[in-house]
Design a protein around this nucleic acid. Sequence first.
DNA 1: AGGTTAGCTGGTCGATCGGTCAAATATTTG
DNA 2: CAAATATTTGACCGATCGACCAGCTAACCT
Lengths: 209, 209
Amino acid sequence: METEREPEQRTFTEIARRQQIVGAAIDTIAEVGYAQASLARIAARIGISKGVISYHFTGKDDLIKQVVVDVIEAGRAYILPRVFAESTGPARIRAYIESNLAFMREHRNYMVAIVEILRNGAFTADGGRRVDGRDIDVATRLLKEELARLQAKGELRGDFDPGAMAVAIRAAIDVVPHRLVLDPDFEIGKYGNEIANIFDRATRSDDTQ
Amino acid sequence: METEREPEQRTFTEIARRQQIVGAAIDTIAEVGYAQASLARIAARIGISKGVISYHFTGKDDLIKQVVVDVIEAGRAYILPRVFAESTGPARIRAYIESNLAFMREHRNYMVAIVEILRNGAFTADGGRRVDGRDIDVATRLLKEELARLQAKGELRGDFDPGAMAVAIRAAIDVVPHRLVLDPDFEIGKYGNEIANIFDRATRSDDTQ
DNA sequence: AGGTTAGCTGGTCGATCGGTCAAATATTTG
DNA sequence: CAAATATTTGACCGATCGACCAGCTAACCT
């Protein structure tokens, strides 16, 4: 079965077609939600038959996993350089929040799609997850570790729980795609600055104020 | 059609049956997610036929609306007295956050169900919403108004945007039901205290520290 | 007791789902 | 050019959905 072929063995056509299908899946999920994003709709968006999706992916789960991998990788490639360009704790947190929001502004559908998948993926009738929630939620875990590291170095106040702080920061970021749906005039940039201020005040050591 | 009957004209049996069905809907949505919460599953949970749901509600939308109404009312009845029992701005915000989290601990399925409905309700193929997103999101609007009021009275610092602050606070609260699914050991009480601290530091006037 | 209404059962309907696959077309290889 | 392989089409499958309804049972009223 061609879809089982190692990535390095894939033809140019296959790689291009897979990327096209993943892009269509992202846009469809962002537009109509995960539950309504059927293989028929995804295929129709790019003018192919459903069978093409079955040919290139082992199933809908396989396609969704690829969507998640691609979006996470794009986000990491965008955000990490901006975070590590800063040298102090408070500056890194601000860069983390603002670059997440900037990435959302430039790739709105990416974020809507992945938040949709995460929400829906957490629930399935058989108790399993379409995409393992813990793997997707790697962002919260990495942020928690970074916050703990910055606390240990004295760059942030030492009296908050980095796990709870990471959850709150991610929640304030991840709410944005849905906010955009409810309110198209939602100002991402202003909001990003506001929540960067909130978490700056909440985490900054007193002696750096 | 009996379902169109004004609430005050409903028989005792009808009122009891509707409440039972709403409770089954909440538990089903909380357990398997909105998309999988079919009328068949809801009916099976309480050992009735699907037709009974159609008899008592004009459709699935009607049932979901009733779920939302009941959950919001239960939340308000729980939270508002606890918030208004406090007299200062910072204390009210802390009470708001901690009573929301306490309500979640005691009514976990209520919150999972409503967050599920809100997420799914925001997206439908026809562009309409199962339950109008703005109406459900009344909590964010009311919180924004209360924050603005407290700012105007000088009880909170005057330099943050109450709209952004309300969105961030609600996001940190609303993430909890999904957190519980991903991590059954998630400590709601500790988290509630931590985010109450975060938003206390972010909103408190300097002269009350 | 009989008539009326409320409440319910269990089946049917058209629509849509994800997945499958025979056959056709396109591309590549010798 | 023919053969082999890759890619695609479009129909079919069983399952499930929400909505609907004929007919039955229970409860109420005269």
